[in-house]
Design a protein around this nucleic acid. Structure first.
Lengths: 145, 145
DNA sequence: TTAAATGCAAATCGTTTGCATCTGT
DNA sequence: ACAGATGCAAACGATTTGCATTTAA
């Protein structure tokens, strides 16, 4: 247990949003100025292996970065808005039910279940009231990336 | 509609397995030898935008590649085995129910829903009968990447 | 004819690695 | 003391880009 690891773990825990390796490094440096990129990646790898953090893609809204969060008891779903880039989280008993069904049906011993949804959030949907239905449709289509 | 695009679309459609950009290029070249990487990526981007193909990560089992499949009417779940690398697919009414619930609860207009599960498949679970429960636990843990 | 698609090569981005040095236990 | 963790710099793999050229409609 080194000072660098402590700084990184604290950075992940404290952040209200999902951080990628780069911003994780930046935050950790406030505490431990000499910490290096490589250490960040190695520590993330470790925490993943220990099952302490989950890795997310968040629909690749900003390039191919990965994002990290502390693993909670109940899995939650991540909703990414293609228009505003916002991320929402939601948990549902139906999700747990689904995982149980999958395990039962396929015999899989599930260790990670990642559900990521992309679309247009309520706020963006109601905003731009001038937009015609055609424009909305177009935007939704184009957003599908 | 160019010859290159035709070759790529055919390559995606014909493949029984999920292909990444590299193998997609390779397959398409059998038909159109002069096709370039850049064209592959540009065409994939187009097909994604048009909602014709879905992009998958398959739990990053082999690096950070992305995999592609033609978008089907009913979404399915991808199960990746950390031990043998195999991919299984499964659809479930519960999955559709969950998506409906998410949309209803959050007001999201969902355009993509990607559920990827990582774990140990039934075959790998039953294999290695000599493995102690501890070893299984350890393997499952380590596999969590 | 001409806007759009392509090939090529170089660039970019996130991530990983080899290796010499340092540090926690 | 010494296994393991770190920093540094270089390497890497997947993907993207600028630009001159070709092609489908």
């Amino acid at each position: 247990m080194t000072a660098q690891r402590r700084a990184l773990i604290e950075a992940i825990q404290k952040s209200p949003t999902h951080l990628d390796a780069g911003s994780l490094l930046e935050r950790a440096r406030r505490r431990e100025p000499n910490i290096d990129r490589a250490t960040v990646y190695r520590t993330i790898e470790l925490l993943k292996r220990l099952g302490l953090v989950d890795e997310l893609d968040l629909m690749h809204l900003e390039g191919e970065k990965h994002f990290y969060e502390v693993k909670t008891r109940t899995d939650h779903i991540h909703l990414a808005c293609f228009r505003c880039g916002g991320i929402e989280e939601i948990a549902s008993p139906v999700f747990d039910l689904l995982k149980a069904e999958i395990a039962q049906l396929t015999g899989f011993k599930i260790s990670v279940a990642r559900l990521e949804v992309g679309g247009i959030c309520r706020a963006c949907m109601t905003a731009k009231p001038r937009a015609s239905p055609e424009e909305r449709e177009e935007a939704a289509m184009t957003a599908n990336r």
